[in-house]
């Protein structure tokens, strides 16, 4: 059951993305790639927030840490991206573990604002530690991944790499959600005291959730750095953390599909609205608000509603054939 769902999610992502990659041109492919990268980050965010109930507004700092680690290792030390990528993910995860133990004693908005402060601090440090990060100039010339001598340096090729990463992360997230560990996280989210009484190590569960979430963010960062091939402090400021949260809420909190839909919508929507001229961002904000008001469970609610509607109609047509 668990394995089947995971595989299903992975195959669905690969198939849908693969189909899209055939018909689209570079600009749309780039947006799709940005969506995929964000989706990886948001799925990770969902592990912390959707499963374990941790509002972390420092997610962009985790993404940045993965991106900067890869950028520094490849440009300053000449590492291969393949070697630097796992290190980037590992460094990010380790960092999450280090801050997790002290910070995760906080709850709700306290945790939200503490992690927001962490994100601001990350931006200040990356902007000023010039010897390591080139400061506000950022690091350019990050090399692309290469497979068998073929550089993954255009949008179409990158999409396949991104999709594989997304499929793996999505499958892992689905598996986690269905596993004992996932249920432990949800138990902690719903009632910490009850969870503790039933023998769950609350602190460890929370730290584990934050670490997994950071690992996905680190992977998103690695993808980001090899996609744009340029990283700067501004790319990972706290506003991006709020965007990740918004993506999850708009898509549908607590679900992998919601995370993917939300990431795609908030990436594409402002670009689609460009036709409106100077007013496009105002409209973007307005549309976000409308979605929140009319779809309180996010776009995933729309999908569910559509499914229910069809089911009801089907039931009318064949009254006895209900599944």
């Amino acid at each position: 059951m668990r394995v089947r769902d995971s595989l299903l999610a992975a195959v669905a992502i690969l198939a849908a993305g693969g189909l899209l990659s055939l018909g689209l041109a570079d600009y749309s492919l780039r947006l799709l790639n940005l969506s995929v990268i964000s989706a990886v980050a948001v799925i990770g965010f969902n592990v912390a927030f959707g499963l374990a109930g941790l509002i972390s507004l420092g997610h962009a700092a985790f993404v940045g840490m993965g991106a900067y680690t890869l950028a520094i290792l490849t440009t300053k030390l000449g590492w291969s991206p393949w070697l630097a990528a796992p290190v980037g993910v590992a460094v990010t995860t380790l960092f999450a573990a280090l801050i997790g133990y002290p910070l995760l004693r906080l709850r709700g908005h306290y945790l939200a604002l503490a992690t927001l402060g962490l994100n601001v601090s990350f931006t200040i440090v990356t902007a000023n530690w010039i010897a390591l990060t080139n400061g506000t100039n950022g690091i350019s010339g990050v090399p692309p991944f290469a497979v068998a001598g073929l550089a993954i340096d255009d949008e179409r090729r990158f999409l396949w790499l991104g999709l594989v990463a997304l499929a793996v992360v999505a499958a892992a997230a689905v598996a986690l959600q269905r596993s004992r560990h996932g249920r432990a996280m949800m138990a902690v989210r719903d009632d910490e005291t009850a969870a503790r009484m039933s023998g769950i190590d609350v602190t460890r569960t929370k730290v584990a959730a934050l670490c997994l979430s950071a690992a996905a963010a680190g992977l998103a960062g690695v993808l980001f750095a090899t996609h744009v091939r340029f990283v700067a402090p501004e790319d990972f400021n706290y506003a991006h953390s709020i965007v990740y949260l918004a993506m999850l809420i708009v898509g549908g909190e607590g679900t992998v599909v919601g995370a993917v839909i939300g990431a795609a919508l908030l990436t594409f929507l402002p670009e689609w609205l460009r036709g409106l001229g100077d007013a496009y961002l105002a409209f973007f904000g307005l549309m976000m608000l409308v979605i929140l008001i009319f779809l309180p469970t996010g776009l995933i609610g729309l999908v569910r509603m559509a499914a229910r509607l069809r089911f009801r109609r089907g039931a009318v047509a064949t009254p006895r054939g209900a599944p």
Partner: peptide
């Protein structure tokens, strides 16, 4: 014209939209 906002990523989006369309 396409808007870049104050974002590097959006600047690339704007550029690629022009390049494509």
């Amino acid at each position: 014209f396409e808007d870049t906002q104050a974002s590097n990523s959006t600047a690339v989006n704007a550029f690629m939209k022009l390049a494509q369309e």
